[in-house]
């Protein structure tokens, strides 16, 4: 059986080795792989405005995007393809208590036209990412 010293070497050596591999892969991801998949050149002022609203309103507190967030409201990665710009603008600015399909309430917002356009641009940009097959096509017909 191992001695305490050997166990310590296993811990320190293993951690160092895998941390280095992780840093190497992260470097490759950040400088080449991730930009190739996410088209940062398409992040316009408009997209950035949408992104800022996404953060400021904590949309992730109910929705998911790229599958990340909370599970109270629909996945929005492909919402631009699924619903189109007009539907999105109508939903985010719905009055009389806010958008509430099937009784589930979204917070009522009062976005300017520019802000609503920004959100649409943001969703369009996210929808064009290569996400390794997510979200998957339905398999049951």
């Amino acid at each position: 059986m191992l001695t305490k010293k050997q166990a310590k070497i296993f811990f320190l050596g293993g951690t160092l080795l895998f941390a280095l591999i992780f840093l190497g892969l992260s470097y490759d991801t950040v400088v080449s792989g991730l930009p190739a998949n996410t088209h940062p050149e398409n992040i316009t002022e408009e997209v950035l405005l949408g992104r800022t609203i996404w953060d400021d309103k904590n949309c992730m507190g109910c929705h998911t995007i790229m599958g990340e967030g909370a599970y109270y409201a629909p996945e929005l990665t492909k919402v631009y393809d699924r619903r189109g710009p007009d539907y999105i603008k109508a939903a985010v600015n719905f009055k009389n208590g806010g958008w509430a399909p099937n009784g589930r309430h979204m917070v009522e917002y009062n976005f300017t036209d520019k802000e609503a356009e920004g959100l649409v641009a943001f969703f369009k940009w996210v929808g064009e990412m290569n996400l390794n097959g997510f979200p998957a096509e339905p398999t049951i017909k």
């Binding site: 895998f18 992780f22 792989g33 599958g67 390794n132």
Partner: peptide, 22 residues
């Protein structure tokens, strides 16, 4: 803790799958 890092550091990848990474 050796096993934790051996698996856990690169295990970060399971959060990355569908978020725009290679």
């Amino acid at each position: 803790v050796g096993l934790t890092f051996l698996s856990g550091i690169l295990g970060t990848g399971h959060h990355y799958y569908f978020t725009g990474v290679p």
